[in-house]
Design a protein around this nucleic acid. Structure first.
Length: 281
DNA sequence: CAAGAATCCTGTCAGC
DNA sequence: TGCTGACAGGATTCTT
């Protein structure tokens, strides 16, 4: 999906486009997303004012005047953009339309329907099933060396899989896990517990990767577009992701590819040669 | 408990 | 051209 940078880009675009706007009506064209959108709650949205647009992990949280939160997750292929109502003819996979009071509409578009939309009381933000067990934000102080060292030391699986675990740290998906580990010069198959001592290197690698991606408006591979309907540019700055067979920008060695937990990982076998299986000299 | 596989769904692309 | 299989940014649930 959209990972943290894409969700953050969407958040920023949404904030400027919809903050203070009233929702006039909602059209649910399809309710069967990853979880069924609670149809009876759609009526609660009409008349509500959007007070703020926040992000937690890869979730967008729209604070409403009704003391509810509209929660949106973009899944693998989702986007949430604001368009002029009279210039928008619903396309295939435009599943929900939120008509606003200034002639615009927020459109939730998601071909694969792995996304989620839910409405919850503000008081349930910390207990909601999807939000209760999330790890620290990677760009916050909570993602500290002490924390990461402890969290990684308990794990026997590969570091790349650990970084993608939203209970360990949120927002890092398949693209940015590979990119971050390249920057940290750690092989994706290294056992996480062994990587624990490198926490001090992992943290800035993750942060600079995510921050650079946010600065480029995220990465657009196939479906992703931001709130204004345009794509990101960070895909042109990938160091290893989908670059297998091409030369490493640092050392020229051919970038390689492997599959971990069913997901593709990309790495430079020379820059990241501390793999778990390396034999002792 | 932790890690991997299977799963949800649709679109695209490579190969035949 | 058309078919088939593999694969794609995620996260949950089921098996080992």
């Amino acid at each position: 999906m959209p990972e943290l940078p894409e969700v953050e880009t969407t958040r920023r675009g949404l904030l400027s486009a919809v903050k203070g706007r009233h929702i006039e009506s909602v059209e649910l064209r399809r309710a069967d997303l990853r979880m069924p959108f609670p149809r009876r709650l759609a009526a609660k949205l009409a008349g509500a004012t959007i007070l703020d647009v926040r992000r937690r992990a890869k979730y967008l949280l729209l604070d409403l005047s009704t003391r509810d939160i509209l929660l949106v997750h973009l899944g693998m292929s989702g986007s949430f953009s604001v368009l002029h109502s009279d210039e928008h003819t619903p396309r295939t996979h435009d599943h929900e339309l939120f008509e606003l009071d200034n002639g615009t509409r927020m459109v939730f578009h998601d071909p694969r329907r792995f996304g989620v939309i839910d409405l919850l009381p503000k008081t349930a933000e910390t207990t909601h099933k999807l939000l209760a067990h999330l790890g620290p934000e990677p760009l916050s102080d909570a993602f500290s060396e002490t924390y990461l060292k402890t969290a990684l030391s308990k794990r026997s699986g590969p570091i790349k899989t650990a970084l993608m675990d939203q209970k360990l740290v949120v927002g890092v998906g398949n693209i940015y896990a590979s990119e971050s580990l390249f920057k940290a010069r750690i092989h994706p198959a290294e056992i996480a517990a062994k990587s624990a001592k490198k926490a001090a290197a992992i943290i800035p690698s993750v942060r600079t990767t995510l921050e650079a991606a946010i600065a480029s408006g995220g990465s657009t591979l196939r479906d992703y577009v931001g709130a204004n309907g345009s794509g990101g540019y960070f895909q042109h700055e990938f160091l290893v992701y989908e670059r297998d067979g091409k030369p490493c920008f640092v050392c020229g060695t051919t970038i390689q590819h492997l599959v971990q937990a069913g997901r593709s990982s990309y790495f430079c076998p020379r820059c990241q040669q501390n793999r778990a299986t390396r034999r002792k000299p």
